[in-house]
Design a protein around this nucleic acid. Structure first.
Length: 563
RNA sequence: GCGCCCGUAGUUCAAUGGAUAGAACACCAGACUUCUAAUCUGGUUAUCUAGGUCCGAUUCCUAGCGGGCGCACCA
């Protein structure tokens, strides 16, 4: 139930009745720029023109004839401002407490592919942005009632694999006998070393090429080495997913779709969707303004679309999808337009969309796993984790080790994800480690701190949840009304974030809510002697925590109990 | 050359075509005998340029400037 939308509908209905026309729509209302002006506003410029009067005069007329108690109307220049009564506050809280929300996606299935990492390479910040974004989008769709299939697609078969294996065979990077997750991490370093050595050793390229052929033959020593090292990477990825609490319904691997892809290419050649050109096999999409997509090289080896086409086919075969989404770097925008066009020509009609996001760069320049100018996920995680752990140790000498570690883990994951999600997907993130290690300002820590503060106050209130929920006192402070109005906007924010495919809107909303709370906490005493007042304030806090918790959950972030 | 994205405060980012362009960081000055100071309060600073549409443009259109990224055998 979207209460803010209900309010807009109600206002529109009452105004239309007053005017005896059906011209005001719920979408015409805007938020006031300042709380002193009220909660909602209606700009009257267009309406005044239709009614052949001036906006200011219309505002005065409408305000004069307004006679509803639940909401006050006031003319302010060309705007009609509305202020909701304090009575309304409790309705909002009751609405949140019932926990129902709109489910526009009921009965629809959406597949969302993300975390398209490469085995035998480092898992770095770029992947962190991808997985955080993909996970959040999946959660937003799920909240809207869709059946969501989060899937990962792992590229385990490119030339980069051969390079890494070459580096291992040549002993450029010593492999330890530690857990395989560590080996997965070391593979990333092996790859960087391979790229370096390939520029030095003249015999390198030929050796790598031979290894690639051996792997593709799927037999022999190099193939066995591929199987083993591939598993190291997969175990490493799995450990990261577990750490981030991100779960996939299915995992797809490029190596498993190349063969089917080749058969598909033959079929599409016969159908005339693909054709031969300059020795290569292409999809000629010039007539759609999409240029040319090369599918097979002139030497017959497969390019990326081969597996991708077969994979898409498999996805549609397995599930009745209404939407199929791909969370991939913005640089592949053209590629996805081409891929979707070919799939359309093949007869697929489901909605297919690329959810692009811009890359993560460092103050030192572009990240590149080839040159090694990256921040690995693991290094960053450990750095942030250490900082939190030290901070907790300073503040809570009485905590045991388990509590410290668990809290630091939650805060670390929250920080990593929040840093990736708080910026619009269309923006390049210039990642500054020192910035990310901050605990103040627009950070996950700020939000977590509010949750912890609320928990603390609630437990000191001495009230049972049932007593809090049935509290009947009045929330009459201006800050309380602002907080409630903010809470009421939650559903709408979710909808907007989902529609714009932009979790940063939700992140920003939650931050603003937290700011309001801290202001409230600072200025208004909460644990007051008046038991009715105390109870209703606790009720407000409980609701703030609910929204904070639910909102952060949509971003894939857990809240701490204490910090 | 063609296409896509981005140009907002010293920096990093906000603003479904609406009221005085908001935050955060940094900097300066304050607030814990009282619910967690990982907090709060106050102070200084900005829409790349030129046109156009509109009652109203950071937002939409055109041209230019600046940056990034794509565009036939990378993924």
């Amino acid at each position: 139930m979207n209460i803010w939308k209900q309010v807009k509908q109600q206002l529109a209905a009452e105004l239309n009745q007053q005017l005896e026309k059906d011209i005001i729509k719920p979408g015409d209302f805007i938020l006031t720029p300042d709380a002193s002006l009220g909660d909602l506003a209606l700009p009257l410029f267009v309406l005044a023109k239709d009614l052949q009067t001036s906006p200011a005069k219309l505002a005065i007329d409408l305000a004069a004839n307004w006679n509803s108690d639940w909401c006050q109307a006031e003319a302010a220049g060309a705007y009609l401002n509305f202020r909701l009564s304090t009575e309304w506050n409790k309705e909002v809280l009751a609405n949140i407490e019932t926990g129902e929300n709109e489910r526009i996606g009921e009965g629809q299935e959406v597949m969302i592919e993300y975390s398209n990492a490469n085995t035998h390479k480092e898992y770095h910040l770029g992947h962190l942005r991808n997985i955080s974004y993909g996970d959040a989008m999946g959660r937003l769709y799920r909240a809207a009632g869709f059946k969501v299939w989060p899937v990962s697609y792992i590229n385990d078969f490119g030339i980069h694999v051969a390079k890494t294996i070459w580096a291992l065979k040549r002993g450029f990077v010593p492999m330890t006998e530690d857990a395989s997750a560590d080996k997965g991490f070391l593979l990333g370093q092996a790859y960087v070393e391979a790229v370096k050595q390939l520029e030095i050793l003249p015999e390198g390229p030929a050796e790598v090429s031979q290894i690639m052929q051996n792997i593709e033959a799927r037999t022999g020593e190099d193939y066995d080495l591929w199987t083993t090292t591939r598993q190291w990477s997969l175990d490493y990825f799995a450990s990261i997913y577990q750490e981030l609490k991100i779960e996939f319904a299915e995992h797809y691997y490029e190596s498993e779709y190349i063969e089917a892809g080749r058969a598909l290419v033959d079929e599409l050649l016969k159908k005339g969707i693909l054709r031969e050109s300059q020795g290569a096999i292409i999809a000629d999409l010039e007539e759609y303004g999409l240029g040319v997509l090369v599918v097979l090289r002139a030497d017959g080896t497969a390019l990326y679309p081969v597996a991708d086409l077969a994979l898409a086919q498999e996805k549609f075969r397995r599930h009745e999808l209404t939407k199929s989404l791909y969370v991939v770097d913005v640089r592949q925008s053209l590629y996805f337009k081409q891929l979707f066009k070919v799939l359309e020509l093949m007869g697929y009609r489901a909605e297919m969309a690329h959810l692009p996001y811009d890359f993560v760069k460092l103050p030192s320049g572009m990240m590149s796993s080839r040159t090694g100018n990256t921040i690995s996920y693991r290094d960053l995680y450990l750095k942030v984790f250490e900082k939190f752990k030290n901070e907790i140790a300073d503040r809570h000498v009485d905590w045991d080790e388990d509590q410290m570690i668990e809290t630091a883990r939650i805060l670390t994951v929250a920080t990593l994800k929040f840093e990736m999600l708080k910026v619009g997907a269309d923006k390049v993130i210039c990642f500054d480690v020192d910035e990310a290690l901050r605990f103040d300002g627009f950070t996950a820590s700020y939000l977590e701190y509010v949750a912890a503060r609320i928990n603390s106050v609630l437990s000191k209130s001495g009230l049972e949840t049932s007593a809090i929920l049935s509290a009947g006192g009045d929330l009459s402070q201006a800050l309380e009304s602002r907080l409630v109005a903010k809470l009421a906007q939650f559903e709408e924010k979710i909808e907007q974030s989902a529609q714009a495919a932009n979790p940063s809107e939700l992140a920003k909303y939650l931050y603003e809510l937290a700011q309001l709370f801290n202001d409230y906490y600072q200025t208004v005493p909460l644990l007051v002697d008046d038991s009715g007042l105390r109870a209703v304030r606790m009720r407000l806090l409980l609701n703030i925590r609910t929204i904070l918790q639910n909102g952060l959950e949509l971003l894939g972030i857990e809240i701490v109990r204490q910090m």
